[in-house]
Design a protein around this nucleic acid. Structure first.
Length: 287
DNA sequence: TGGCAGGGTCATA
DNA sequence: TATGACCCTGCC
C-alpha cells in the first residue's frame, strides 16, 4: 500500500490488500457508517466526518489531509495489520475457511473506546437498525456539529455531555431501560472514577473485569469494547449467533465460559477476528 | 392485529 | 448457576 496525497483534502491509498468497505462496515462492529447513493460510505468517527470509496485496488478518503490520515485513519482502519498472514494462521477449519472467504476484506476497526462502550450498552437485547437510530439521535441532540458537502453531521457526545442529563432526557432517544445505564456510566467516566485509558493498557482479563464494573456492561459488551475499541484480539464476544454456531459445530451444550475458553485455546490473540468472520458469515447467511 | 424475539444485563433465589 | 423482566420495533 502506498499513501498518496491527491490534493489538499484527498488521500488515496494505492493498491490496498484485504480491504472491502461493505464487509468492514456491515459486519456489525460499528454503527455510524452509511452507504451513500454514489457507492461510497460516509461516517462520523474520532471527531471527523469522512467519505470513503473504493476505486479498483485503490481507496479514496475525503476530506482528509496527510496529517489526519496518519493521526487517525491509519490506525482506525487497522492498515498496518497483515490480514494475509492472519488468514493464513486461521486457515484449516472448514467453517472458518468459508467465513473468511465470504467476509473477504473485513477488518477490525480501532474505534473510540468511549463511543464503543455506550454503543454496545445500547446494543443489549436490541436490533442493529434500532441501535443505529438511538446512537444517531444521541449524537444529534448532544454531539458537536460537523459540516460536509452542505450537510450537518454530529459527532458522538462526550462523557461530560451525557453525564449532564437525566435518564428521562436520555430516554427521549428511545433507548428505553438502557437510559440509566448510559447516564450512570457517563458519570463514572466523566468523574474519572474509572479511566478507559488505564483499562486499555491493562492485560485482557483484568481489563474485562474492570469494564464489567460499569452499569449495563456484562461479559458480551465488555468483550465488544475490548475488541472494537481497545485492540484486544483475545476478546471473543459471545452473542446468541456465536453461541448457536459454536454449540452446533464444536461444543454441544457449552456454557459461555466454555465457549470463551475454547476460543482462546483455539485462536489465541486471533480469537476476536475469528469471531468477527464467523459472526458476519452466519448472520448474513441465515436470513 | 397480537405475539414474539432481538448482537444482553441485572436482580433474585 | 439459572430464570424472568425489560424499552422498543419490525416481522410473521
Amino acid at each position: 500500500m502506498t499513501v498518496i496525497q491527491a490534493d489538499d483534502d484527498t488521500i488515496v491509498l494505492d493498491n490496498v490488500q484485504h480491504f472491502y468497505l461493505e464487509h468492514i462496515f456491515e459486519s456489525g462492529q460499528c454503527f455510524r457508517w452509511n452507504a451513500s447513493s454514489e457507492g461510497s460510505y460516509i461516517g462520523v468517527a474520532m471527531g471527523h466526518v469522512l467519505e470513503i470509496r473504493q476505486q479498483g485496488p485503490n481507496v479514496v478518503l475525503h476530506p482528509c489531509t496527510m496529517e489526519e490520515f496518519e493521526r487517525v485513519w491509519r490506525r482506525y482502519f487497522d492498515l498496518d495489520a497483515d490480514y494475509g498472514a492472519i488468514k493464513h494462521s486461521l486457515a484449516g477449519d472448514p467453517t472458518l475457511d468459508k467465513a473468511m472467504e465470504f467476509g473477504y476484506g473485513m477488518r477490525l476497526l480501532h474505534q473510540d473506546p468511549w463511543e464503543c462502550l455506550i454503543s454496545f450498552i445500547i446494543s443489549a437485547n436490541n436490533r442493529i437498525p434500532r441501535i443505529k437510530g438511538i446512537i444517531e439521535e444521541l449524537s444529534m441532540r448532544y454531539g458537536n456539529q460537523l459540516e460536509y458537502k452542505g450537510r450537518i453531521y454530529y459527532d458522538f457526545p462526550s462523557p461530560n455531555e451525557l453525564a449532564r442529563h437525566t435518564p428521562d432526557e436520555i430516554c427521549e432517544c428511545r433507548c428505553g431501560y438502557r437510559a440509566p445505564y448510559i447516564v450512570e456510566t457517563a458519570r463514572i467516566i466523566a468523574g474519572g472514577e474509572i479511566d478507559l485509558k488505564a483499562i486499555e493498557s491493562m492485560e485482557y482479563h483484568e481489563a474485562h473485569r474492570a469494564l464489567m464494573k460499569l452499569p449495563g456492561v456484562g461479559p458480551k459488551v465488555a468483550d465488544c469494547v475490548l475488541l472494537f475499541g481497545m485492540g484486544k484480539g483475545e476478546a471473543f464476544p459471545v452473542d446468541v449467533w456465536i453461541k448457536r454456531v459454536v454449540e452446533q459445530l464444536y461444543l454441544p451444550n457449552a456454557s459461555l465460559k466454555d465457549i470463551k475458553k475454547w476460543a482462546y485455546q483455539r485462536f489465541g490473540r486471533l480469537a476476536g477476528i475469528a469471531q468477527q468472520y464467523l459472526f458476519y458469515y452466519i448472520r448474513e447467511n441465515s436470513r
